[in-house]
Amino acid sequence: MYDLKISDVSKKFGDVNALRDINLDVEENELFGVIGPDGSGKTTLFRIAATLLVQDTGKVKLSGLDNIKDYKKIREIIGYMPGRFSLYPDLTVEENLKFYATVFGTTVKENYDIIKDVYLHLEPFKKRRAGKLSGGMKQKLALCCALVHKPKFLILDEPTTGVDPVSRNEFWEILRNLKSIGMTVIVSTPYMDEAKLCDRVTLMQNGCILSVQTPAEIIEGFGKKIFSIRTDALTDTLKFLNEYKYTENVFLYGDVIHYIDIRKEIKVDILTQYLRTNELKNITIKEIEPSVEDCFLTLMREK
């Protein structure tokens, strides 16, 4: 059974096509990720699902409810965390949480077991004003506020943007816990490395959906050889590889270069040879397993 079914949804803002014919199914109790760069349409899609925007064409059903006709009922079962800071900076941590609990007709006590994991991190700062929290803390508080009424369906728009790596890991751990207690979670993120933490992911670009798969399927379906290259002149190497006629995709990945070749049969030696002729030294080339990021970056380039 699908918990969220988006069929042929398009949305325009003036002349800009924010969403083009989006089709997406999110299963019940799934942790579903929407990955895409800024401006790809993630926020628009999430706002439509959260009944905050109306699509131009197409249908959206959340738990069998229509997002336009039954928007009131949908608002009762979802928890929504907008991408930007959505707390009252002049209220304390505790007051923000209490306020959202009251507005949603519940109390912090009643649903404490759900927010406990997140709130434990915040407890020491509960008297601090929300405007004075660090980025990660703010996001955790916003999540608490979105969770406090025990929603069935959680919509999180870029919860980890601007959050440090440690807090990001904690955040994803929390999301897995929420899934384990039966919630359906859709989450968007610009960080491709977070894709592997989702049950299924989709890649969005320019208002289109490129693929919907599990992280493992994405890697399996990649079917191309990928090399990690290290030299003592990375910028030059990047330039030479970009000019190479067999290059499918090449990009900087941390302090190494990832290179994807269009030829099925390709050996490390041939590459080393090519780079040597361009007078590069200390060349180390290894064939590696592709990561989700490699797959996405290549997929985005194809489209």
Partner: peptide, 13 residues
Amino acid sequence: EFGTMEVLLVSPL
């Protein structure tokens, strides 16, 4: 401006 209206709108208020 604060973005809190988004959450208020989604709330049952």
